[in-house]
Structures are given as C-alpha cells and as structure tokens.
Simulated scan of single mutants.
Amino acid sequence: MQYVVEGWSNMLWGKEDETPTPCGLDGDPFEALANGTRKPTEPHLLMGRKVGIGGMLKWGLGYGFDMLARAKENRMVCIPESYWKTQLEKALEELRDEAIEKGEDPSKVFLTEGDVLTAWTMKSVVGPQNMDPNRTVAGSIAMSLRKAFEGDLIPESSEHPYVGNAFGWGNVLVTARDVNRKPLSWLARQVRRAINEQGTRAQHEAYYAMVREGPGLPIVIFGDGGMAQIGFSNWSKAGLFNLDFAPARKVQKPGASCRPSYVQENHGPIKPVDGFFVFGKDEKGNYWTSAYKVKGQWDRLDEYLVEKLEKGA
C-alpha cells in the first residue's frame, strides 16, 4: 500500500519520473515459499505451540462461530498523542530501569510506538472480559515479507517495489493473567521480541514450510484450542494521513495542504472479531484504529477505558 500511495501522490504532484516501476507480474516471486523449493534452514520458534487438528476444531467452534455467525459492530478508536506518548515514555523508562538493575546497557532498550499500541490494545481487549487467568491470549501481528526477502526473492524496493500481498505473522503467546497483571512495558517487550525473532527470513521460511505441511489452511495457528485471539495489522508505513490532495482541489491556495483527517477500511465479506487495523497517525499525532467486536462488547470496553482513565492508568 505504501508504494501505491507514494505513486499516487507523485502523479498528483506531477512527479511521474520519481515513481519507480513495480516488480513485474509475469511470475510470483514468492512461489519458492509456496511450492517448497525454498527449504527451511531452522525450525520455527513456536513449533512446539502449533495447534493440532483437535485444537483447531475447538478454536474454530469458538472464534470461528463469533466471526461467522454472531452479530458484530465496527467502531473507530482514536488514541490521542498525549496518551500514547506518555505510555511509551513510561514503558521505556521501566525497561531501562530494569536493564540497569540487571547490569545491562539501558541504551539498548528499544520499543516502537506500534509495540506500545499493540500491547495497550491487548490489555484493553482482555481487561473487560473476566477471562480465566490461565487462558492463553494469542496476539497475531501481520508482518511484511519484503524486508526479509529483498535482494533475494524480490528486488530492492527502491528499484522495483513489490506491490502484491506479501505477509507473514509474528505471534505473541501469553496468559490472561500476564496481560492483566503485568505492566504495559512487559507486554510491549513481548511484542517487540516476537517481531524481531519471528520476522527473519529463516523464520518466514520455517513458517511457510509448516503451512505446506498442514491441512490445507493458508495459516498456521499457534497457542491452543481455547485461546483468545487478537489480530493486528499496522498500516502506518503506508502514510495514508500524509497523502496531500492539494493539486486536485479546484481552488488552490499557495502552500495550503489537503490531507486526510479521517481514514477507514471496509472489511469483508468475513469480519474478524478483535482484528485491529491501525491506520496511522494524523497530523495532530493521534493514532486511529478500527476493529469488529461481538455486539455489546464495545460498550464493555468503553466502560473499562473510562474506568482506567479515571484511575490515571
């Protein structure tokens, strides 16, 4: 999406010569992952947590029923800059203090804004549901395959960007007790660790080898049959809020921009429950996200957030 948006912007601004030619469509550069000619060089880190047939049936009857049969509601959530930035700074401070206590270098502590948003969302979803503390919570984070396979299966993006679908997954497996009781900094670090460790070329190869060996599904499910599933797809790098439509305005004011103040996706036909899309950050620094939840659960989440904010959490 990033390359499409950037190309669109270049065309609007008369910069056609700055738009790179996409990777050709005469073949699938990721075919090696699909047909097995690219053999994995290491096992997947979560191989021992792969859900078997019985667990998948149990999971499907729960999450699958919610996704396919139950009434759902879609809402937008705006996370103000004043809130998420405070949470990020607090999380980094806690992890640096922990590093110092362990005799480690605090300058190596690293979290992204997305890590904190993902961890905060997991807490916001799990908190109002009164889950069994031992229940597994699986956070599935969509990751692009491009960076891992540039210069290998696909050319460098700066030369010929690949604009087709190319995604893998990073999976965070924790318990409801961990999500509710441990600090946001701890959970954000689990998110960062999952992305770093499962986002390598070797791990993506191992993942798709497991897909090929599976029962015919396009994904591998990690965790257990009774887990709570929360999905994430962060579109911030697409720069949707940075797209400037000023040249398309009938009346142009010199130097005036015309950027989106609101972005929304239209998901279908299947609407995944607790599948969160992060659209990015608007010009005021606020993050916007959207999801479908089972009807009635948004009200509980809203009450939970109000209660947390009143307590200053």
Score class of each variant (00 low, 15 high):
residue 2 Q to T: 09
residue 14 G to I: 05
residue 16 E to L: 09
residue 29 P to E: 06
residue 39 K to Y: 09
residue 41 T to G: 15
residue 42 E to G: 15
residue 43 P to W: 12
residue 44 H to C: 01
residue 51 V to G: 13
residue 52 G to H: 07
residue 55 G to D: 00
residue 57 L to N: 01
residue 57 L to C: 02
residue 65 F to N: 15
residue 70 R to Q: 06
residue 73 E to L: 05
residue 80 P to L: 06
residue 85 K to V: 12
residue 89 E to G: 13
residue 99 A to M: 02
residue 99 A to F: 12
residue 99 A to I: 11
residue 104 E to F: 14
residue 113 E to A: 12
residue 125 V to T: 09
residue 128 P to Q: 05
residue 129 Q to F: 07
residue 139 G to Y: 03
residue 142 A to F: 00
residue 142 A to M: 05
residue 143 M to H: 01
residue 144 S to A: 01
residue 149 F to D: 00
residue 156 E to P: 03
residue 157 S to M: 08
residue 163 V to A: 08
residue 171 N to L: 08
residue 174 V to Q: 03
residue 194 A to T: 10
residue 196 N to W: 03
residue 203 Q to I: 05
residue 208 Y to T: 05
residue 214 G to D: 02
residue 215 P to N: 07
residue 215 P to K: 06
residue 217 L to N: 02
residue 221 I to N: 04
residue 228 A to P: 14
residue 231 G to Y: 00
residue 241 F to V: 04
residue 244 D to K: 09
residue 248 A to Y: 13
residue 251 V to F: 07
residue 261 S to Q: 03
residue 263 V to K: 04
residue 264 Q to L: 14
residue 264 Q to F: 10
residue 266 N to L: 02
residue 270 I to G: 11
residue 271 K to Y: 01
residue 281 K to T: 05
residue 281 K to R: 12
residue 284 K to R: 09
residue 293 K to Q: 07
residue 302 D to L: 09
residue 307 E to R: 15
